[in-house]
Amino acid sequence: MSSPFTLAACAEMLWRDRPIEWRCARLAEMGFQVGLWNWPEHDLAKLAASGATFSIMNGYLTGRLADDEGADALLRSARETAQVGKRLGVARLNLHGTGLGAGGLPAQPCDVVSGAMWLKARDTLCRIAEMAEAEGVTFTLENLNLPVDHPGTPFGRAEDTIALVSAVDHPRLRLNLDLYHAQIGEGNLIETCRRALPWIGEVQVADVPGRCEPGTGEINYRGVARALQAMGYAGPVGMEAFATGDPEAALAAFRAAFTL
């Protein structure tokens, strides 16, 4: 049996005592593509020489979706990151509803999102999509959970990201559907995948609670994998999770959950 999906794993969260380029090379040796977080923290030449294929990377450093100043900063930052993404051959560049600071908390928390903010966020994402088309790259918008990891993040729920990306409806703007975050904030994962399906660029996974590899918590990832295959999804699935023990055992559990 083999996986009907392209499997990837976040290098930042595994073998955390090893250099990042070693982690990337090891994931490549094991047959996984590689996810990254903030690129300025790493030596780009060493990443490029690691032999890894990069599935996704943070697509901005500053900026926000829903106000003029933040949108302009986001466009500048995303355009700069697009050049790095092209240098590394990164398939998708990831965005959030607002910039995240220490501990994943929003740089500017927002508990109430107005109608004007929704319209501005859609306009900003249209500008991102147009820039992505010109640069030949693809951006994704990721959902986040509000109760545990990212309280006060606007446009954080999967429902919100689906609404925004479907409203823009551009092939250079896709969803990074994170099922760990969706389970904490909303649940109903298979139906969420079904609603999101036309716009999914990548699915990310970790179990709940704990954000560790599949099989350590409450999510039936074998069932999710079968449902994704049945609905015709054959794209990337990335493990963005910590290992409860040996990272290679965690990766084996992830591969097993998504091998059908």
Rank of each mutant, 00 (worst) to 15 (best):
G223F: 04
M30R: 15
V203R: 09
A163S: 14
F54A: 07
A227V: 08
D207N: 00
H96Q: 06
V203N: 08
R122F: 00
D111T: 11
R172I: 02
A73K: 10
T153V: 14
R226G: 12
H42F: 15
A234I: 03
D67C: 06
C10F: 11
I219T: 02
W39S: 15
W199D: 04
M231W: 06
V112E: 10
E130L: 14
V208Y: 01
M117T: 00
L146V: 13
G97V: 06
P106W: 01
A48G: 13
L36F: 13
N145Y: 02
A227E: 13
K46F: 04
D169Y: 04
G115F: 00
L173I: 12
A241R: 00
S50L: 12
I190R: 15
K86T: 13
H181C: 03
G217L: 04
R18E: 14
F155N: 04
A230S: 15
F54L: 06
L44C: 02
C10L: 11
L173A: 03
S166M: 11
H96M: 13
A116Q: 13
L189T: 11
S55I: 00
A66M: 10
G232Q: 05
E240M: 05
N143M: 05
L36V: 12
G97P: 05
V34Q: 04
D123N: 11
D178F: 08
H150Y: 02
E12H: 12
R157T: 14
G215Q: 02
I56D: 10
E186C: 05
C126Q: 15
V90C: 12
V237L: 02
P198N: 08
L47A: 05
D68T: 14
L260E: 10
V137Q: 06
A230F: 05
G103E: 09
F54K: 09
H170N: 13
L44W: 15
Y60C: 09
W22V: 13
I200Y: 04
V90G: 07
N143I: 03
E29I: 07
R76L: 09
R222E: 12
T124Y: 05
P236Y: 01
G97L: 00
L141F: 14
L144G: 08
P171K: 00
K120Q: 15
P247R: 06
T98R: 00
K46N: 03
A102V: 13
V168R: 07
A225W: 00
A11Q: 05
A134P: 00
R172M: 02
A167M: 08
D111C: 03
P151Q: 05
A158L: 14
A129P: 10
G89V: 07
E41D: 14
N143F: 10
P106V: 02
A243E: 07
P109Y: 09
R174F: 01
H150K: 07
A11K: 07
E191F: 13
E130N: 08
I128W: 00
S2N: 11
G156D: 05
G35Q: 03
Q108L: 09
P109N: 05
L197K: 13
L125K: 09
F5N: 09
I200H: 08
P147A: 07
R92Y: 15
G232I: 10
E135G: 04
Y233A: 09
I190Q: 14
